[in-house]
Design a protein around this nucleic acid. Structure first.
Length: 164
DNA sequence: GCCAACGTTGGC
DNA sequence: GCCAACGTTGGC
């Protein structure tokens, strides 16, 4: 996986999580507001996690819940390291085909920046050009890159108070 | 709880 | 290498 600097890199990421399991509140209360983003077991999402660089911006997205949408902002605090849970036979994320020499799954360190003053609902995002983003075209992908134009749309919606 | 989308697995 | 079966995700 190459790490080409700036130009064609995403302007921001969307990180999905179920708030009942781990939501923005959990992140903001964590030590240093940091967590290792583990448990992702999808190759496309994995590739996105590995492409993340320190300082990258992300949006914390609540999925599979009452109020689906963007709930906060995060930043990447450290590049991805092998996801420990893949080696743990007791873990639900255990992967028997993964080895320490050749890990399959990786976890960047994600730090909470802020919890928004409400949730920017998915249905609001759906009314914008974001319908063309992978958030909508790849509904099951849990780690999603945003272009600069897409990020601007999100920022605008946040500023204009489309929160619920 | 249902179901569509879609990624993964395994038989051939 | 194809493709049917199966499992999972996630919106509704």
């Amino acid at each position: 996986m190459s790490r080409t600097p700036s130009a064609d890199r995403p302007a921001a990421w969307i990180l999905k999580s179920e708030p009942d399991v781990f939501g923005i509140d959990h992140l903001m209360k964590a030590k240093d507001k940091c967590t290792l983003w583990d448990g992702v077991r999808n190759y496309q999402a994995r590739n996105n996690l590995v492409a993340m660089q320190v300082g990258d911006k992300g949006y914390f997205y609540h999925s599979s819940c009452d109020l689906i949408g963007i709930a906060g902002e995060v930043r990447i605090a450290a590049v991805a390291v092998p996801d420990e849970s893949q080696f743990d036979s007791q873990s639900e994320y255990f992967d028997a085909k993964s080895t320490r020499e050749k890990p399959r799954w990786f976890s960047p360190k994600v730090q909470g920046v802020r919890k928004h003053n409400g949730v920017l609902p998915r249905e609001v995002l759906a009314k914008t050009a974001l319908v063309k983003s992978q958030l909508f075209t790849h509904s099951r992908l849990s780690v999603i890159p945003l272009t600069a134009a897409e990020e601007r749309i999100v920022e605008k919606l946040l500023v204009t108070g489309k929160l619920r």
